[in-house]
């Protein structure tokens, strides 16, 4: 079973995505910010990461993405954010997909499925 790491500071969003993604047949681990995510990644190797951008943390999502890529981690990352403006920031281009948060999780699920297909 593929593992999905969901990083989002909103508990309701984490819970929603977790239940939807699990329903789609994935194992889900969650972090409320990059600091927690770093700790998780010390012993977890997710197959895909969904990443919020603005979070209650000293590191924002795009900086964390840079950090991952800088560390040579090539795990697919889907940015899932309430803002569309970051897609013009070339730093966000390091992500594999850029999705706008929506109550309709169909796009998120199909993206996760596509990016984790062997």
């Amino acid at each position: 079973m593929k593992t999905v790491l969901i990083i989002d500071d909103e508990p309701a969003i984490r819970l929603l995505y977790q239940s939807e993604v699990e329903a789609a047949g994935f194992r889900v681990i969650t972090a409320s910010n990059p600091t927690e995510a770093r700790r998780l990644l010390e012993h977890e190797t997710p197959d895909i990461i969904t990443l919020d951008i603005r979070m209650d943390d000293s590191t924002d999502g795009i900086t964390f993405l840079m950090e991952l890529r800088g560390a040579g981690i090539r795990t697919p990352v889907v940015i899932v954010t309430a803002y569309d403006i970051y897609q013009y920031d070339f730093s966000s281009w390091a992500a594999d997909e850029y999705l706008l948060k929506s109550g309709d999780t169909q796009a998120l699920i199909s993206t996760i499925q596509r990016l984790t297909r062997d």
Binding site: I13, E20, Y83
Partner: peptide, 16 residues
Amino acid sequence: HEIRNPLVAAGGFAGR
């Protein structure tokens, strides 16, 4: 930021 997140959660769980 402030509205989309709760909105997404409410709509998402309604879907569930």
